[in-house]
Design a protein around this nucleic acid. Structure first.
Lengths: 132, 132
DNA sequence: TTTGATGCAAATGTTTTGCATGCAA
DNA sequence: TTGCATGCAAAACATTTGCATCAAA
């Protein structure tokens, strides 16, 4: 099952660089400008394989379509409650010992050993705070 | 817009006590036994208003239907990667100063002030660990 | 030439919603 | 009697998938 490097995948990778945490539909819309025959299914299929192989990150949201992050390295996100923009933490922003402390209290309370965590923060971004 | 206390809402509240972090469909199935004319739409509508009024908690998942928690007070969850069961932390399990530290590093890295966080942990529960 | 990737459209699964009717206050 | 809540069914929405065809290696 050797992977081929299709034109479409190339364009998806480019769109991911160009756009800021886009949804699949936004990537689709961007590529549509230059390559009108692309299909949304292809965009999803490629994003899924890329995420599965650790090339990109998929960011699930409870109330809106998933978004994709071209940076696959461990980092976290904060969403602006007003404009919806997503901001990345640096990869080393959260000290490992802080995560370990978190895990420990969860384990102590539930009896289940933590293997991984999903964390999403929210607040009001500086730009939105300014004009309010 | 005074809220009325319908038979259906009563049964939904009961099902929430009886079942363990159920989905809307599971609540629907439970009520169906005693009250065959209930509709799934009604279950969703009631769960939404209850969550909106802070009576219960809605737990979103990226890859499966949302679940509901009869305990509306701040606490966190860990999902077993094998059996899918959800375990609650105690309400005071995570020390406020730990959360404050987390918020601080996120703010320092992104420039956005944290207002709230969503955290979901996962691991293997003791029961699943035993028979493996 | 081989077979993985694509485009299209239909299917999926969850959740919401419009509307006529029912029922709690 | 009033108008919020219900049941039903259709719609909305994000995402996946079956299949014939295309194209990368």
């Amino acid at each position: 099952m050797n992977r081929r490097f299709s034109t479409q995948k190339k364009m998806i990778a480019e769109a991911l660089q160009l756009l800021d945490h886009p949804t699949a539909a936004e990537i689709y819309g961007e590529i549509l400008k230059d390559y009108p025959q692309i299909s949304l299914g292809t965009v999803y299929r490629n994003l899924n394989t890329m995420a599965g192989e650790g090339e990109i990150m998929r960011l699930p949201f409870s109330d809106s379509p998933d978004r994709f992050d071209q940076n696959p390295n461990e980092h976290y996100h904060i969403v602006c409650n007003r404009c919806g923009r997503i901001f990345d933490t640096d990869c080393d922003a959260i000290p490992p010992e802080l995560l370990r402390q978190l895990d420990k209290v969860v384990e102590a309370s539930t009896g289940v050993a933590v293997e991984s965590r999903t964390m999403l923060f929210s607040g009001i971004c500086p730009a939105c705070k300014k004009n309010s």
